[in-house]
Amino acid sequence: MKQSEKSYTGYYFLIVVVILYAIVFLINPIKISESLNFTIRIFKQIIPLFIIIFGLMVIINQFVTPKRISKYLGEEAGIKRWFIAIGAGIISTGPIYMWYPMLKELRKKGVNNGFIATFLYNRAIKPPLIPMIIYYFGIKFTVILTIVMIICSVIQGLIIEKEVKI
């Protein structure tokens, strides 16, 4: 998917929502006032979090590239490779389709499907977004969810390694 196509989808969605607001405004303007107050409240809560998220994204983007990850995932072996797949998945950034070509190349080099699946599952854990999840769900929930997801990523990797051969 091209970047521009992706951006337009977002704008189309926003336009549909604005049209919905216009329709509801004609029927019941009080509900629109309530909705906008609610929107402002959510924005006030999340804007400071976005500043932290942006800072963390800058740090990670500086050090993590598909090329660097490919190097580690392709070279390491044994149990260490599982840790690399977990770590690489967690710190990888950007849209998923950006990583598919790298994963295809890795498979050609002999990296098995299990590591690729583990890598993809761990993309769900994003350090820059942790402040947001902590804000909504608390530290205890965030830590437990992260640990459970990492364990599941390895189980999923092992199943796929066994079931889907290269």
């Binding site: 977002g10 969605f13 926003l14 929502v17 509900k31 629109i32």
Partner: peptide
């Protein structure tokens, strides 16, 4: 760019949540 590309969807989703919440 990541944050900027996210903005229209994010604003849309928050507006939609707020509308659903009110209705």
């Amino acid at each position: 760019r990541s944050i900027y590309n996210l903005l229209p969807v994010l604003i849309g989703v928050i507006l939609l949540i707020s509308l659903v919440n009110a209705l």
